[in-house]
Design a protein around this nucleic acid. Sequence first.
DNA 1: CCAATTGCGTACCGATCGATCCACAACTGC
DNA 2: GCAGTTGTGGATCGATCGGTACGCAATTGG
Lengths: 219, 219
Amino acid sequence: MNIQKSASVGRPRGFDADEALEKAMRVFWQNGYEGASLPDLTGAMGISRTSMYATFGNKEELFRKALARYADGPASYGAEAVVEPTARGVATVFLHGAVRSATLPGYPTGCLSLRASLIGGEDGQVIRGLLADWRDETSAMLRKRFQRAVDEGDLPAETDPALLTRYVMTIGNGVAVQAAAGAPRDELELITDAVLQSWPPALARPQRRTVTSGRRARV
Amino acid sequence: MNIQKSASVGRPRGFDADEALEKAMRVFWQNGYEGASLPDLTGAMGISRTSMYATFGNKEELFRKALARYADGPASYGAEAVVEPTARGVATVFLHGAVRSATLPGYPTGCLSLRASLIGGEDGQVIRGLLADWRDETSAMLRKRFQRAVDEGDLPAETDPALLTRYVMTIGNGVAVQAAAGAPRDELELITDAVLQSWPPALARPQRRTVTSGRRARV
DNA sequence: CCAATTGCGTACCGATCGATCCACAACTGC
DNA sequence: GCAGTTGTGGATCGATCGGTACGCAATTGG
């Protein structure tokens, strides 16, 4: 069931499963998970309900595969960012990737995971968990990369990698929302450029730091 | 139909319309528009379907009133910000208001308009338009305020008020998304502090602004 | 040609969506 | 008390949701 390969015997499939998944990804991207009805999906995919269920399992599985395709394709800038040689380069590639991905010509604007996550009652909990997992993966990648930068002296020793990660992702999320609201790419580029102009950001945790006496946090 | 006042004659209403609207607002805040079903809403409001329709019109009207309550209550920081004496003060109050509103104890995290807007097929177009209008109001307020700051010399003459507005709202949107994802208030405070540390941001339009160059996308 | 296997189209399933109908309850003014 | 008006609860509406049963089409292996 997990595979979407056509069998060797029997009637051959009348459509390309990869193209159909691409279309499904765009519909989810445009409408979110619950906002994408089965007629919406199958209509865009050019196939019938039965073919969709036979090939992809069900709506949730279809979304899972579409999300994987999204993460490996238009939203792969996270993995591209962490291989940059400097923390500033990481942030630059990440934020510019976020802008580019959220304003791709011919694709829906904004971020698929945002459109699909911020919704739903208790039934959408599975989907939200799926997206939270993916978000946490990206977050962990950045955090480890920033930790390495701290260890290497690329970032100030007092930098909190987790907080810096949240900082970068906050900007990225804001960019995605703005793109979904219709912000043009060039303006978002200018905004991310401005954010990157002050790097590293003045992020200092006021609370307890190291064992050395240091200054106490205010009560 | 627009009024929700109880009439002087006839059977008196068995519930408080204001309290019911407050509960409805929280349900929309938590679940979005389409994610909030009528049983969800009426259950939280403690009334029956019929009473809801008699008092508020329909689901869309109920959302309209809940949004108005939201804009005048937890999300009133936009209006509070623009009365600050300096542009930096405006940004500070706005961003800290965004953090505070998105992490109010006892309320759902994040922003109601975000949860309700980033979804839905063609039927949710009315709701999205409603939210876009509200967003545009806030955007226009900030833009005019920043324009005044430019005129007064509070901001550099080359500052683009619209672009600066988008910058501030991008951060605010990112904060809302992060809060909805579970980010604690103190971390978001640190992040907005870091953003405000570099003020005004290095936002420069590289080319001359055309005066009336077509319609601008909504912020 | 004949099974066996697999894709596909139609018609349908129970559940839930927002919304409404209608009889009755509860109140005001007379 | 009675007429008029308005709120409430229960039953129900048509539409749509995700998902499925079934019969036919199209292919492979003999």
